[in-house]
Computed example of a mutant assay.
Amino acid sequence: MAAVGAVEITVDRLDVARACGREWPVPEGLAAELLPVAECVVFAGAHLGADAWPVEWADPDRVRQ
C-alpha cells in the first residue's frame, strides 16, 4: 500500500510541476522502484487524464429519502 501511495504522490508532483509550467523529471532510482508498482495498479484501459473509474451520480431526490 505504501508503494501505491508513493506512485500517487510522484504523479501528483508531476501534475503540479506541469501546471506551474515547470518540468520535474522523476529521479532515475525512484522511477526504477515505482515503475513495477505502477504497472500493477494501472488498469490496461487507462489513458492520460483518466485517473478514476466512471461515476454514476445518484438521483438527489432518492438520496434524501
Rank of each mutant, 00 (worst) to 15 (best):
D59P: 01
D61I: 11
P54N: 11
A52R: 09
A32D: 03
Q65G: 06
P54K: 08
G21Q: 08
A50P: 00
W24D: 14
R22H: 13
V4S: 01
L48Y: 10
E39R: 00
A46S: 11
G21T: 13
E33M: 07
A52N: 06
V42H: 00
Q65A: 11
W57P: 12
W24S: 02
D15G: 09
A17Y: 15
P60H: 10
P25I: 05
A31C: 03
H47Q: 11
A19W: 12
A44E: 08
L14T: 14
D51A: 08
V16F: 02
G5T: 15
P27S: 08
V63S: 06
E23M: 12
D12F: 10
P27D: 03
V42L: 15
G5H: 12
A58L: 13
V42M: 06
V11H: 06
G29D: 10
A50I: 01
D51E: 05
R64M: 14
E28K: 02
A2H: 13
L14M: 15
W53V: 12
Q65K: 03
H47V: 15
R13K: 05
L34W: 01
A31V: 01
G5P: 06
L35E: 07
I9P: 03
A2C: 09
V26N: 07
V11T: 08
W24I: 02
R22W: 13
V4L: 05
T10K: 00
R13D: 05
P54H: 14
L35Q: 01
G45A: 15
C40T: 03
V42D: 00
V63H: 02
G49N: 01
L48M: 09
R62W: 14
H47T: 13
R13C: 12
H47E: 11
G21S: 05
P27Y: 10
W53G: 07
V63W: 10
P25K: 12
T10S: 00
C40R: 01
V11D: 07
D15V: 13
P27R: 08
R64N: 04
R18W: 12
G5R: 13
C40N: 01
A58P: 08
R64T: 13
R22Q: 14
E28M: 08
G49C: 03
A58G: 09
R22C: 15
L30P: 06
A58F: 10
A6P: 04
L34S: 00
L35I: 09
D59L: 08
R13F: 10
I9S: 03
E23W: 10
E28P: 00
E33L: 10
H47R: 10
